[in-house]
Every structure is written in C-alpha cells, then in structure tokens.
C-alpha cells in the first residue's frame, strides 16, 4: 500500500488474492473500509432505507470473501466485481426478482493470471473513470441515473442524451482486451 492512504487499484487485486489464498482478515478489513460505504450509498440511492442498505452491504462484502476464488483480475477490476455483486443483491432485495446470469466461460481463473493483462485492465479502467469524470454534468448525471437510479430500460432506449458514444469509444479498449485474452 502507498503511504498516502489509498491503495492503487491493482493493490485491491492483491487484497482479494490474499483473502483467497490465506483468508487474510487484515486485507479484508481494508477492502471493507473502502467498498462497504460505497455499496451502502449505491443501495440507498437505488431506494433501500438505511438499515436494509447496511445489511445488504454486509452481505455483499461477505459474498466477496466467499467468491474470492472466482475473481479473475484479467477480466474485471475489484470495483467492477463489487459493482456486479451489489447490483445482483439490489435486484434480489429491492426488486424481489431473480437475476439470470450468463453461463461461465469455459476457462477458469485457476491459471495464474498474466501481470501485464492485469495492469493494462487497471490502466484502461482508470482512463474510463477519467473520461466519465470529464463528461458534462448533465450527461454524467444520466449515466448515474441509469446505473444507480430509476432509469428504466425503455427510458434508456429513449434517452438520446446518454453519452453512449463516449462510453463506447473508451470501452472499445476493454473489448479489444477481452478478445485478446480469449485467443
């Protein structure tokens, strides 16, 4: 960890690996301090009251511990992974619906992941975060509403102000990277 407090994104990867390999509770506590309050805020913005959001955030973090062996750092950053767990918990707890998930890919995360792939994913994700931060206020707000708020699928389809073009040009990189890892 760097001396100025926050670990870099690729350090979070090491935290998850420490949990997976040695059930490291110190690594978990650090991850918890960073992500649990964000998950709680995300759930409250999605309509959960504070006590439900608190409980669900704890469940999301417990899931992270139990699924540490399924995390693939060449395909997702820890933040992306936490987002997908929190999103599934939101659908389950708030919308009372099941979440059909795609079949798992034929290759698993068992093989030791390539450090270069991990780093380039972290780098692209940082660039994407930067691009999102630099969006005009109105566009960023729309994206936030699409992910955290109440923009339904038909509203997303009708919403011409959504900067999907900007997102797409950024995530082109993610697409190319995934193709590369699948070869």
């Amino acid at each position: 960890m760097r001396s100025n407090g926050q670990p870099r994104a690729d350090d979070w990867v090491n935290h998850v690996i420490r949990i997976r390999d040695t059930q490291d509770q110190v690594a978990f506590a650090e991850l918890f301090r960073h992500f649990a309050p964000r998950v709680k805020a995300f759930l409250m913005r999605s309509g959960a009251d504070p006590s439900l959001a608190e409980e669900c955030a704890q469940e999301v973090m417990a899931t992270l511990w139990h699924k540490a062996h399924m995390f693939d750092p060449t395909r997702a950053t820890v933040a992306t992974w936490v987002f997908t767990i929190a999103r599934n918990r939101k659908i389950d707890a708030l919308r009372k619906q099941k979440r059909p998930e795609p079949e798992d890919l034929p290759w698993g995360p068992e093989a030791e992941p390539d450090q270069e792939d991990i780093l380039s994913l972290q780098e692209e994700t940082r660039a994407l975060g930067q691009a999102l931060a630099e969006l005009p206020e109105k566009q960023r707000e729309l994206i936030e509403r699409a992910y955290f708020g109440d923009l339904s699928h038909s509203e997303i389809a009708a919403e011409t102000g959504l900067p999907l073009g900007t997102i797409k040009s950024r995530i082109r990189l993610a697409l190319d990277r995934l193709r590369h890892t699948m070869k």
Binding site: K40, M44, T80, V82, F83, T125, L128, G129, L132, K168
Partner: peptide, 22 residues
C-alpha cells in the same frame, strides 16, 4: 465483451460515487 465494458462503467461509478458510513 460488451457487457463486461458496461459492468466496468458501473464499477467506475461505484468507485467515484459518495460513500455512507457503515
């Protein structure tokens, strides 16, 4: 692959959004 990209946007939003104390 395109879904992974959209999930990545979700992760970036989660990373940058406010936090509420546990």
């Amino acid at each position: 692959a395109r879904l992974v990209s959209f999930d990545t946007v979700g992760g970036a939003m989660l990373e940058s959004c406010e936090s509420i104390e546990m």
